[in-house]
């Protein structure tokens, strides 16, 4: 309940983006992050921003959720932008003090870095808002499948990932319960000196660790009882299907790249 809001933040609006194959979404969003680095002028950034906005609108997810994705990182973004502004040189100098200066290029670079950050965050938020964590795990497994040839335990890793995802809410609930129990025994979190605060975590972490360990043992027993003996030869209940829409999405992305490169080299 409580945990769902924090984690994954999958918002089921059932849009065209939701229905895409998770492999397509995963690969395309990573690809998009790479091509952002080809942008070098206001025209190219404007084009990528328009493209991202279009995608966001297609998801039918309220814009507020994207802002929620940016907000926790705002500090890092602002810091990077400021450093960029103060430490790059070139062009007209507006202000100078020792090695610090505000220059024309500094401002432009700062603006570009800012755009880059926001675009990357928005596109990855599109992925997490429209794809269940489980589906992302499936996509990773499917994409890494060739690695089984060189003895990488892809199935086992994928199962571990999906179990980890499945237990996140359970462990969040558990830590809430343990925290309450210790608060009832007089522990005061988040007050006093740093040392005191760190010490107040011990009564949470030890029980949480023990409970996680017990759960893991129970789970291993249950899996064994249900015939799990390693990933070899296991069939899969959940299959991924590549539809025309996924091919179309890839095509759109290629077209977007061509426009980007045209803007970069011919304007």
């Amino acid at each position: 309940m409580f945990s769902k809001v924090l984690f994954g933040r999958f918002v089921p609006t059932n849009s065209v983006i939701h229905k895409l194959d998770p492999r397509a979404k995963l690969v395309l969003s990573m690809y998009f992050i790479v091509i952002i680095f080809f942008a070098n002028s206001w025209q190219t950034y404007a084009w990528l921003a328009a493209f991202t906005l279009g995608t966001i609108l297609l998801t039918k997810v309220p814009l507020g959720f994207f802002w929620d994705g940016v907000r926790p990182l705002i500090f890092i973004i602002v810091l990077t932008v400021i450093l960029q502004i103060f430490f790059s040189s070139g062009g007209h100098v507006y202000w100078q003090w020792g090695i610090l200066s505000i220059t024309q290029f500094g401002l432009i670079n700062g603006a570009y870095i800012f755009c880059r950050f926001v675009l990357i965050i928005c596109m990855s938020t599109v992925l997490t808002l429209t794809t269940q964590p489980l589906m992302i795990a499936d996509a990773v497994e499917s994409l890494l499948k060739p690695l089984t040839k060189i003895k990488v335990p892809v199935y086992e890793l994928a199962l571990m990932l999906s179990i980890a995802l499945r237990f996140v809410p359970t462990l969040m609930d558990e830590s809430q319960k343990i925290m309450n129990a210790q608060r009832a025994r007089g522990v005061n979190f988040g007050t006093g000196s740093l040392w005191k605060r760190v010490k107040s975590l011990i009564p949470i972490l030890i029980p949480l660790f023990i409970s996680a360990f017990n759960r893991a043992e129970d789970l291993a027993t249950a899996m064994e009882a249900r015939g799990y003996s390693g990933g070899e030869g296991r069939t899969k209940y959940r299959l991924l299907h590549w539809h025309t829409a996924d091919s179309v999405a890839c095509f759109v992305m290629v077209a977007a790249t061509i426009i980007l490169l045209t803007l970069r080299y011919f304007t």
């Binding site: 319960k177 343990i178 129990a181 009832a184 009564p203 029980p207």
Partner: peptide, 14 residues
């Protein structure tokens, strides 16, 4: 003033 025994309280031992 209040003592609180939670469900499965043995989970709070540390």
């Amino acid at each position: 003033k209040i003592g609180f025994v939670f469900q499965f309280p043995e989970n709070q031992l540390f």
